[in-house]
Nucleic acid binder design. Structure first.
Lengths: 356, 356
DNA sequence: GCTTGACTTGAAAAGCGTTTCATATTTTAC
DNA sequence: GTAAAATATGAAACGCTTTTCAAGTCAAGC
């Protein structure tokens, strides 16, 4: 409860429901009854327009009136109503970010970049989890139509290009996805180039048995398709390689590692999606009596702390930079059907690791 | 550009700026000129109130009118203006979550729980990065006053209890922080109990040289204070232990590990804040010729995939559950000065790991 | 046939700023 | 000294929906 002077109280708050007079003090539940711009104007003896000008630090306000208004604002503990501003301005200074789910550290960097740039540009970020459910994702699209956000960022998603295109009619969207979508502004890592580079590297090292893993099946995941395509493009001879999908985390890595290292014919090299899967494979290999890096080579993805810790190389897509650029593009005046293709960064590691 | 029938166009859109007639088609830039409830009402031949009733599926609307309204909505591609709804209802169905920064996977679980429960309760989540800067954190507090969010969740922060209390006057807040704050509704892990348990466990194993690490110094971090306090409470004899603060990630772990394992007197056990630090210490130990788990015991914190991967035990605070409960508390009718103390979960690991 | 209650419906107020336009006052310029 | 430019200020329209209140319609009950 905040106490006000008798005058302020009588002038402003008596009309509001939550005001009460407890015998000695005039008090108002701060929470409910707040002074509005009209109240401030009345108490300061100026018009609403003038208060608005003071509020937004516009010019053409006499010094004395400005001070008076500021004093009244302080006395009434005034605060603008953000929703009224949004409605009036037709702008929310908020962007939405659709993420499939959050307990996957591969989004940390991306989201971090998004948050950083958005903060820089004075925008706020609505985090929208989709759990890879198309219905939920679709429901977020209406946020644009409802004018609740000024723009939408898509990360990995299940939406059809058609759905996205329909959505794009209602506001600005940018994909910072695994893969580009035709005719939709995108900022994305050049995964295909990365895959080509990795497979070329492994081929040139003379490896014959090169396994690789992926997450969602090639049907629903564009990056899985790219991975297979790159493999087929580079590894043209009949290598004894295997491909495993449905790999998402450490446990999955252990599972497929168990298959890879079960018999005496072990892989020369493995290219995994994600560092956690790689870690799982390494763990599994060790239970079968093989050790990294003596017995096989492994390359991870996303360059999380894990690859540093275990000392295997990992493809770095610079997700922080991608996040920042995606926000910049989304909020820039030149927002258009732009596609920004990012270079990857892949290099073998040499530092000390948690592995002997 | 969306095309409308001549009638719809003349009735509704001609008044709006962005409308244009290109000779054959009446068209409107969807983006800018949208039909509003008034337009729908006019075209359907009913009042605004009736449209609103249809919109919100309230009873007492004649079947035929309802159908007519729905048809008009479809024709005009109508969508409510979310900001007008928020203003009118005085409710945003949005909560804010202040996080220090996001590239720390220890928040993944917590945020995941928050997102899940919020989604369940039809609320949206505004992610507010503070970068541990008091000015930024304070600025977020105004969101409550501005009525842009219905509630605020605090995770690790630099705010003084005074600041928080002042803020709590303007709306609902819940701390899901490392530690409880007096008189502020909180959901938090019982870290002190965890620290006591860990140190007791290590003491009972007969270890004499027990090191422990922490993040921010005891001045600014309540959890660091708890850690020291727990140590002093349990390890009463003059043990040869050391305490290291400023440990945040793998690199810091390597750094302090370098100090720990430099000379021949090595620790029996180490209790780290966070699994990454533990991983760094393990890596450093190995470069000095020591190996885990043969030569020392180590216990991490937050039970991230890393502890599973490297096979050391880690204190689990059930952050997902904490996030969910924090949201529930924040949005419940019984929101009050409630403190929910969570039990921890600490157990030694036995599974295969990426370490030999 | 009349009362009562249930159902329909619309006008208008409330929620709160921003912005335009017209007017009034003051200052600058020549 | 006066025209032109600059500054100061308020009324009113605008952004859009929700909600209350009063009134009107219709059928069931006695």
């Amino acid at each position: 409860m905040k106490r006000f002077s008798s005058q302020a109280f009588k002038t402003i708050f008596l009309k509001k429901k939550s005001a009460c007079y407890n015998g000695s003090d005039y008090a108002v539940k701060k929470w409910e009854a707040m002074a509005n711009i009209k109240d401030v104007a009345r108490m300061a003896g100026v018009s609403i327009a003038t208060v608005s000008r003071v509020l937004n630090e516009y010019p053409h306000v006499a010094k004395d009136k400005q001070e008076k208004v500021l004093a009244v604002m302080k006395e009434l503990n005034y605060s603008v109503n953000g929703n009224a501003v949004k409605l009036s301005k037709g702008k929310t200074n908020t962007i939405g970010v659709i993420v499939p789910y959050n307990n996957n550290s591969c989004y940390d960097e991306l989201i971090n970049g998004i948050l950083k740039k958005a903060h820089e540009l004075h925008y706020q970020v609505l985090l929208l989890p989709s759990y890879y459910e198309n219905v939920i994702e679709s429901s977020y699209l209406t946020l644009l139509k409802k004018k609740m956000i000024d723009g939408l960022l898509l990360t990995s998603h299940t939406l059809h290009p058609e759905q996205i295109k329909a959505l794009a009619e209602w506001g600005k969207i940018v994909c910072c996805d695994a893969c580009p979508i035709e005719l939709v502004p995108s900022v994305f890592p050049d995964r295909f180039a990365a895959y080509i580079e990795v497979f070329t590297y492994l081929k040139n090292k003379g490896y014959k048995r090169i396994h690789f893993t992926s997450g969602r099946d090639s049907q629903s995941s564009p990056s899985t398709r790219l991975r297979i395509q790159a493999y087929q493009e580079i590894i043209t001879e009949a290598y004894e390689s295997q491909f495993f999908d449905q790999c998402f985390d450490f446990q999955d890595g252990k599972r497929v590692g168990g298959i890879m290292f079960r018999n005496s014919i072990v892989p020369d090299a493995i290219f995994t999606n994600g560092d956690e899967v790689a870690a799982g494979i390494i763990a599994s290999a060790q239970t079968h009596g093989y050790s990294y890096p003596q017995d096989f080579e492994i390359i991870g993805e996303e360059n999380t702390p894990l690859s540093e810790i275990l000392g295997f190389p990992s493809v770095d897509y610079h997700q922080t930079a991608i996040g920042e650029q995606a926000v910049s593009l989304l909020l820039s005046d030149e927002y258009a059907r732009i596609q920004i293709r990012h270079q990857l960064n892949f290099r073998a590691r040499t530092e000390a690791s948690a592995l002997s």
